[in-house]
Design a protein around this nucleic acid. Structure first.
Lengths: 193, 193
DNA sequence: TGCTGAGTAGAGCGTTCGTTCTAGCGATGT
DNA sequence: ACATCGCTAGAACGAACGCTCTACTCAGCA
């Protein structure tokens, strides 16, 4: 067995959470698709379903952070990098049949009223990704305030575009938003920025 | 009894769907909170839970369309109108304790893989809202292509900002995105647009 | 007075949920 | 050889799920 049972549970749970949300994903389904048994799940995660979900979200958070960093580093120009990032999201979304969107949105929306650790994990993921974008902008010479505002906008727009793309089963929203975000970023680099 | 039983079911289902998603909302909960009985629900909606959800989403779609139109009409300048729209969303979100976000996102994300009527209702709602924004831009003299791209970006960004605002329990993402969207729109009105 | 049909009321169906439980496996240490 | 321990395996629990079903109320009408 190449991967450990625990890892298989986390990875499987992450994928299912991404596609079906928290309530829509059952512990038994996770165990079955991870080729583990119920006993194993509760052995590694005595905290039950919620603990599995938190571990899965943290896994997804780091996994996407790596992809995001790679896309941001792909071009020295931040506007082009953000556009590339949107393109990357569009490509992966299409390849997955429009099912694998943002790995935390679905779970986050379902646990909003509560102050569950799931919600906190999702918030932490969003904050970390935003920091990555802001860091790229800072390194490119943007003012701190501009970098913060732009990073928040970039992340929100990409998030929304991904949802729209999933619902309409089209890559166009992501492509369009990528172009518009690039334009917005460049507007700060213009002479009268 | 002022409102009809059917209307109470639809309105209650819409609110619950918005907050808890499709899977997280039970038929019995809808019936209870709507002060109706299970028999009444299945009397008015022989299609069961799915039919209730579709009716609720269509209701939410029209309700939000009215609010959106009102915000868009509040200012002749499209950039200011979009910013006002973001502000309006931020205000309502805070007043609801960060629970009442986009009325279709949660339900849409849960039914993505499927081709259920719920997913189609959500897609129709998004398309209708985008058309409203595009219409405003067209009326303000924007080129058709620009209006379409901007409308898609505005809607995606607002959608994403609302999710971010809900997860972080802060109005700032919506305020920031509103300002940045206004800037983006104005960049098309500049002399070298 | 009795019929009809819309709407109300809720018991109960089979299924699935998250969780707990006991039993057992195989590798390791002594 | 034996005990220990990490892990696997799945039966079983109570609760909740969506849905079906029968019984009931009550207004309208001849």
């Amino acid at each position: 067995m190449q991967t450990s049972t625990r890892d298989r549970i986390v990875v499987t749970a992450a994928r299912l959470l991404q596609r079906q949300g928290y309530v829509g994903t059952g512990i038994k389904q996770i165990a079955q698709e991870a080729q583990a048994t119920l006993g194993s799940v509760y052995h590694f995660f005595p905290g039950g379903k919620e603990a599995v979900a938190v571990a899965a979200i943290e896994h997804s958070s780091q996994e996407f952070a790596a992809l995001l960093q790679q896309a941001l580093d792909s071009d020295p120009d931040p506007a082009a990098a953000v556009d590339a990032c949107a393109g990357q999201l569009a490509r992966e979304l299409r390849e997955s049949g429009w099912t694998d969107g943002c790995p935390v949105t679905a779970a986050a929306l379902e646990t909003l009223g509560t102050d569950s650790p799931i919600q906190q994990a999702c918030a932490a993921a969003l904050r970390a990704w935003e920091q990555q974008v802001a860091g790229k902008l800072l390194r490119c010479g943007f003012a701190a305030g501009d970098a913060r505002d732009l990073a928040a906008t970039v992340l929100a727009a990409l998030e929304g575009a991904e949802v729209t793309a999933q619902v309409t089963r089209s890559a166009e929203p992501l492509r369009t938003v990528g172009r518009q975000l690039a334009r917005l970023i460049r507007s700060y680099q213009a002479p009268d920025g």
